[in-house]
Design a binder for these strands. Structure first.
Length: 213
DNA sequence: CTCCCGATAT
DNA sequence: ATATCAGGAG
C-alpha cells in the first residue's frame, strides 16, 4: 500500500475516533501550556496536572519563576522527574522570555524553538494548541511508535526527519489535530506494551500486528 | 550516544 | 527487576 493511501485511511479513522482530540494537560494560557509541556517529558499528563494545579497558583508569570531560588523550584516540580534539568530549563526559558520577548510566547516556530528546553515537539504542541497555529507536527514517543508500526515512515530514530515526512503527507490545516489524535491513539490503542490490536481499525493491513517495535 | 530521574505497569 | 512514560541538551 502506498503512503498516500495509508495516510488517507489513517486520517479518516482517527477523525471517527477522535474528532476533537483535546490535550489531557490542563492550562489557561500559552505560558501555562509551555510550562506543562516542558514538565511532561517522560512523565504522564495526570502527574503533570497534579503538580501544575499548585504550581500555577504560586508561579503566575515568567517573572515569578525567576524570583525564587532554583532549589525551591526543583522541589515544586520534583514528582515530574528530571527535576533538576526541568527546573533549570524553566528558569532559563523564563529569563529569555522576559529579556527577548517581553514575557510573551513567540508565535514563530524558529523563535520558540530557541528557548532553552523547547524542542520541535514542545514548540508544535504549544503553538498548535494555545494559538491554533499549524506550524509543525509534534512527534513524541507515541507518534513515533505508531508511524513506525504502520510503516508510514522507515526512519527509526530521527524524530525531526519523521516530522518532515509527516508534514509532507498530512494537510497543514490538520497538523495539530493529527498529532493530538495520534498521541491519543498511541496511548489508548497502539500502546507500547500490550497494543490492543483487536480494537485497531488498521489491523488488517498493519505490518506490525501484536509485536513490539 | 549519554545523561537526567520519579512513578507506575508488567 | 525492568521497561516505559507528551524530551531536550551536551
Amino acid at each position: 500500500m502506498k503512503q498516500e493511501e495509508k495516510i488517507k485511511i489513517v486520517i479518516q479513522e482517527l477523525e471517527k475516533l477522535y474528532p476533537e482530540a483535546p490535550l489531557a494537560l490542563r492550562y489557561r494560557s500559552a505560558f501555562e501550556l509551555l510550562v506543562a509541556v516542558i514538565l511532561s517529558a517522560q512523565c504522564t499528563d495526570e502527574r503533570v496536572n497534579r503538580v501544575t494545579e499548585k504550581l500555577f497558583e504560586k508561579y503566575r508569570s515568567p517573572q515569578d519563576f525567576l524570583n525564587v531560588p532554583v532549589e525551591e523550584l526543583e522541589e515544586d516540580i520534583r514528582p515530574t522527574g528530571f527535576y533538576r534539568n526541568k527546573a533549570r530549563a524553566l528558569r532559563e526559558c523564563c529569563h529569555k522570555l522576559m529579556r527577548e520577548f517581553g514575557g510573551e510566547i513567540p508565535r514563530d516556530i524558529n523563535q520558540i524553538t530557541k528557548l532553552p528546553g523547547v524542542g520541535r515537539k514542545t514548540a508544535a504542541m504549544v503553538l498548535g494548541n494555545a494559538y491554533g497555529l499549524n506550524l509543525g507536527i509534534a512527534v513524541d514517543t507515541h507518534v513515533r511508535r505508531v508511524v513506525q508500526r504502520l510503516e508510514l515512515t522507515r526512519e527509526k530514530k530521527n524524530v525531526d526527519k519523521i516530522e518532515q515526512e509527516l508534514m509532507a503527507l498530512v494537510p497543514q490545516e490538520k497538523w495539530t489535530w493529527f498529532s493530538n489524535a495520534l498521541i491519543l491513539f498511541g496511548r489508548h490503542i497502539c500502546q507500547a506494551r500490550k497494543p490492543k490490536c483487536g480494537e485497531c481499525p488498521f489491523r488488517e493491513w498493519c505490518p506490525s500486528p501484536d509485536k513490539v517495535v
